[in-house]
Design a protein around this nucleic acid. Structure first.
Lengths: 173, 173
DNA sequence: ACTTTAATTGAGTAATTAATCACTAATGAC
DNA sequence: GTCATTAGTGATTAATTACTCAATTAAAGT
C-alpha cells in the first residue's frame, strides 16, 4: 500500500466518522489528506468504493479482535469479555466502528457482518447457561451490548465506563 | 398552518428520517410534497430551518407524551412507564425520533433537550429507591433506555418487544 | 368591489459536487 | 538502461446543490 493511499484512507475515516458519509465531500478528503482529488478515484473508483475499503478494513481488524474472545470456553468469561469490547476500541478501530454504526441508520444491507459470529455464540452460550426463555435473555444481552456500543462511540469510553461493572452484575457475570 | 406547509413538513420528515439530513435534497422534498421548491424557502428560510421546525414539533409532541409520565408518584411505576416509551412511538413521532437520533452522531449541541426532564427524574428516583451507588444505577438505566430506543427506531418495535419484560425484571420493576 | 397581504410558482444562479481525462513522475522487471 | 506499469496531478466536466427572485394567484380585510 502506497503512502498516499493510506493518507486518503485516514482522511476519509476521520471525516466519515465525524461529519458522516454524505456530508463529507471528496475534495474535503483530498484536502485533508494533502493529495490531489483525482487520486481518490484512481485508487477507489468512487466515493462508495472508498467507504467499502474502510468497511473491509474494519472486518479485518474485527476478526483479530474477536478471535481470542470467540475461543473462550467459559461462558461467563466469554460474555464478560464481549461486554468489554466497546471499551477496548481505540484510535482507528474506534473511528471505524463509529463510521459504521452511524451509517447503519441508512444502510439496511450490512448490520455488522463481522459481528455475526459474536451474536451467534451469545445465543449458544445463553442456551447452555440458563434454561427458561434463553432466547429472550440472549436478545436482551445483545440489545444492551448494542446500546453500550452506541453510547461509547457517541460519548467516549470514559463517560460510560461506570456502567460496565453495573451491567455485569445484572447478568450475574 | 397552510396545507402546503404541512405537506413540506411531512415530506421532509419522511426523507430526513430514512435517508438522513445531508443525503436529502430540497428538490427531493419538494417533489415528494408535490410543491414548488421555492416554497420551502419562503416558509422555512433554509434547509436547516426546516430541520429545526421538525425538532420543535418533536419537542411539542414530547411534552405531551412525557407530561403524564413525569407526574407519576410511584417510582417503580414511573421507571416502567419510561422504559415503555420507545414502544409507544407511532407514525409521525416515531419518524421524528428516528430523524433526531440518527442525527445525534453529528450534532453535539442537542442531545434531546426535551429528554432532560425524564433523565433528571430518573436520577432522583434511583436516589430514593436504592442507596448504594444510585448514580451508577441511574446512568445504567438511562444507557439501556437509550439502547432500547436506538434499537426500536432502527429495527421497529415488534422485533424488540420481547426484550422489554426481560429488562423490567433486571431492574426489579 | 377594491386593496393589501400572503401563498405559490418556476425559471434562474452561483457554487459545489462526484467523477473524468490527458498528462507527467515514479517504480519495478528484465 | 529500457520499457511497461503504476502512482499522482490538476484542470475540466456535466450534473446537482441550496437558494433567489420576479411574476402570478389566492385570501383576507374593509
Amino acid at each position: 500500500m502506497t503512502s498516499k493511499k493510506t493518507l486518503i484512507l485516514e482522511a476519509a475515516l476521520e471525516l466519515f466518522s465525524t461529519k458522516g458519509f454524505s456530508a463529507t465531500t471528496t475534495r474535503d478528503i483530498s484536502n485533508t489528506a494533502g493529495v490531489s482529488e483525482g487520486l481518490i478515484f484512481r485508487h477507489f473508483i468512487n466515493k462508495e468504493g472508498l467507504f467499502q475499503a474502510l468497511v473491509e478494513k474494519n472486518d479485518f481488524l474485527n476478526n483479530i479482535l474477536f478471535k481470542p474472545i470467540l475461543e473462550l470456553e467459559h461462558p461467563k468469561v466469554f460474555l464478560k469479555q464481549v461486554l468489554s469490547i466497546p471499551f477496548q476500541l481505540k484510535g482507528e478501530q474506534f473511528s471505524l466502528w463509529r463510521m459504521i454504526y452511524s451509517q447503519q441508520w441508512y444502510r439496511d444491507d450490512f448490520f455488522q457482518k463481522s459481528m455475526l459470529p459474536i451474536k451467534e455464540k451469545i445465543k449458544k452460550v445463553f442456551k447452555n447457561l440458563i434454561h427458561e426463555d434463553s432466547d429472550a435473555e440472549a436478545q436482551t444481552f445483545f440489545l444492551i451490548l448494542d446500546g453500550i456500543i452506541s453510547s461509547v462511540l457517541m460519548l467516549g469510553a470514559a463517560k460510560t465506563f461506570p456502567v460496565f461493572e453495573n451491567i455485569l452484575r445484572k447478568f450475574n457475570l
